[in-house]
Amino acid sequence: MEFQDLMSQVQQQAEDAILAAQDLDTLEELRVKYLGRNGILRQQYKQIGSLPEEDRPLAGQALNKASNSLKKLFEGRKSALSEQAEQHKLQAEAIDVTLPGRTPQVGHQHPLLATLDEMIEIFLGLGFVVAEGPEVEDYYHSFEALNYPEYHPAMDEQDTFYVSDDVLLRSQTSTVQIRTMAKQKPPVRIIAPGRCYRRDTVDATHCHTFYQLEGLLVDEDITFADLKGTLEIFAHSMYGERCHVRFRPDFFPFTEPSAEIALTCTLCGGEGCRICSDSGYLEVGGSGQVDPNVLAGVGYDTEKYTGYAFGVGVERFAMLRHGIDDIRLFYSGDMRFLEQF
């Protein structure tokens, strides 16, 4: 057989095999077989020497051509098969994206404390500093210094937990007013957040433990109008401009004049509903101008200084904000509750 014929036969065989190869390993085997160091084409080169002199150039050309053409075919086939292999691999790596993710656990803030923090932020913005006082208090700071007459029906409303005649659990954060003023000359501009206690039987709307935020501002020329303005800013920051603050006369021994603070009911927007007993308002705390007896008791000049004080319950705000209907949940430690906020 002529060399060229043989060549084209080999080339044809090789081409068929390459195109038939279905994976990279087979292809590599073919490459070694035909184009390798000891491959068929290399063998053919060796044959050229045994051809007649005049036939050698043509045979050489044919051989080179076949070699180049096969190399090209190999490369083409290789990249096609690589592509295919990559596809297979990716397919094999496909996962069920609907399985749940592995979320890093991040703990949740207690809704009561989150609400309290937000309330604190508002007053920080108004220049109030945060003061603290003990939860277990003495009679003096709880009542005497706050102008509570010893045998007065106002004491009934306190319903205090006593440890002894003189030691008790504070029933309001107002005690911090006295502790702060005793240490500091005016101006005094503080808020006092904290835990308070009252001898209430626990049910869905009552609890013997609660959080309160107290505010106190004493300086020259502090007016009742300033009290209204401050609490309106607070209410608007919490619930928006449409929230109206209602002040109406009330009685607290340590303020005069005294005012109950009520906000537009967030559930009905002031229309009246079951929650607000159809009044359109929800009571959130008490306030007033600090009674001169209180100021005199801590040694302030009552002609020179006036001030206002207010105290609001935190539970109410948290309940309204999140639609919580049972106060006991706050103290339950129930994960199902805590993880919702």
Binding site: G107, T209, F330, Y331, G333
Partner: peptide, 8 residues
């Protein structure tokens, strides 16, 4: 998770 419980 943050929790609050009674002091008593």
């Amino acid at each position: 998770n943050e929790t609050i419980s009674y002091s008593m």
